[in-house]
């Protein structure tokens, strides 16, 4: 009865009329141990189908190729940016902002210097005062000498008397 059934299924199978369930049934039968001798020669075929089904793709697929390409170009871009950074300023000269900064620094220095010079002038004034004092002292000394002359003269007069 079972054999009869299998025989019918095989016939249907070869006419491509079997459903997937019936084919699964055939596969199960031929992968089993109890295969009738008259169907023995179909065994390798169904075994082969079942074996092939287990074959697997084991290689890795490099899905990130896009990214690595990008990374390669990033290094190139970095070098380019570096070059631009080195070369361009020497061509362009100082920028507007740098000019303003320089002006600011210049003005600040000038201010500081003028402050110093103001102090210097003040000192000079005091020197002048000192010189004036010296003059007065000289004058005093002169008058003192006149006074001493006067005293000698009076001494002489006193002697004569």
């Amino acid at each position: 009865m079972v054999l009869n059934n299998i025989e019918k299924l095989i016939e249907k199978y070869h006419n491509a009329e079997t459903s997937l369930q019936e084919e699964a049934q055939l596969k199960a039968y031929f992968n089993g141990e109890n295969v009738a001798p008259e169907f023995e020669h179909y065994k390798p075929m169904f075994q082969y189908f079942s074996l092939s089904q287990k074959e697997q793709y084991t290689k890795d697929v490099p899905l990130n190729t896009k990214k690595t390409k990008l990374y390669q170009w990033i290094s190139v871009a970095a070098v380019a940016v570096l070059m631009v950074g080195l070369v361009v300023p020497s061509f362009m000269g100082p920028t507007e902002q740098e000019k303003q900064e320089a002006l600011l620094v210049y003005n600040q220095t000038m201010e500081a210097l003028s402050l110093i010079s103001l102090g210097m002038n003040e000192g000079k004034q005091q020197f002048n005062n000192l010189a004036l004092v010296g003059d007065n002292i000289n004058e005093g000394a002169h008058q003192a000498s006149k006074l001493s002359q006067f005293s000698t003269m009076t001494n002489k007069i006193l002697k004569n008397k």
Partner: peptide, 22 residues
Amino acid sequence: AIRVNLSRARKTIREKLTNTHQ
């Protein structure tokens, strides 16, 4: 068309298999 092709293929396999078997 698929059934026809499949049937032919299966019969070819059977034929060759039977020959080698015998």
